[in-house]
Computed example of a mutant assay.
Amino acid sequence: MQDHENIDRLKWKTLDSTYLFKENWFTVRKDKCQRADGKIIDPYYVFEFPEWVTALAVTADNKVLMVRQYRHALGEVGLELPGGCVDDTDENYEDAIRRELLEETGYAFESAHYLGKISANPSTNSNLMHMFVATGGQKIKDQDLDDNEQIDVLTLSFEELNTLIEEKRIAQAMHISTILYGLRYLGKLTIHP
């Protein structure tokens, strides 16, 4: 049980915000904050990103879809789950993940179950990743990628996915979280220490 009085004493009040950089995919602001005990925290930097969605996507023939793409910040080609940013045109997070799955993989899914939300870094990032399990996937079209995207789609067995996890070959931490929550939801969490 949470003690709301003790929780509230930990919250900060924002006294001032100044945007240092503002672009569609990355915004940085500098806040001046005050703790409940009166101490001023200045500056405190916050990175604003759009909300994100991702899914453990399972095809109708019980294969998991993964994507392989180059990630410039790390300078590596990595294995990830399909997903991306929530657009202004998406009515809700489920619409966003269905759109992202279709664009990146060409697959449409019978169901998309919401698993919850996580944060990449709640200390600095203002956004959340919304996690799903999508099941009953059927390929219905070719990929429809953004100009800067180059994505290979892989279909893996659950055994192959578990091997990737055990060998620590998936670097995207938020996607590992989604995979583990998704496997647990599907009753397929079989990772061994």
Rank of each mutant, 00 (worst) to 15 (best):
Q172N: 15
Q143G: 04
S17N: 13
T135Y: 00
R169C: 12
L189M: 12
F26M: 12
T18R: 14
D42Y: 05
D144S: 09
A173F: 06
L156V: 02
T59Y: 04
D90W: 00
K39R: 12
E103S: 05
R29E: 14
K117D: 06
S177V: 10
E48D: 10
E103D: 09
P43H: 03
N162A: 15
L115P: 00
Y44C: 05
Y70L: 08
E76V: 14
G106K: 03
R29P: 06
L180M: 11
R169H: 14
N24C: 07
L161R: 03
T27P: 06
Q69C: 09
D31S: 09
Q138I: 03
A60H: 10
Y45L: 05
E166K: 07
A173V: 09
N6S: 10
I41F: 03
E160L: 08
R29Y: 10
A134N: 00
A108L: 06
E167L: 11
H72F: 14
R9C: 12
N148K: 09
L56M: 02
D95R: 09
D142Q: 07
E23K: 11
D37K: 02
L128P: 01
E76K: 15
K13N: 07
Y185A: 06
D3Q: 11
P50T: 08
L164V: 09
H4G: 04
M66A: 10
K168M: 14
E167S: 08
W52K: 09
Y185D: 08
E166A: 07
L20I: 11
Q2S: 13
G187V: 08
N92Y: 05
Y107K: 03
A171R: 15
L161P: 00
G137S: 02
C85G: 13
D37F: 05
D146S: 09
E110P: 03
S119H: 14
W25T: 11
I118S: 14
D146L: 11
Y70I: 05
Y70V: 00
E149A: 02
I41P: 02
A55M: 04
I170D: 11
M66I: 10
C85Y: 13
N121E: 08
K63P: 01
W52Q: 10
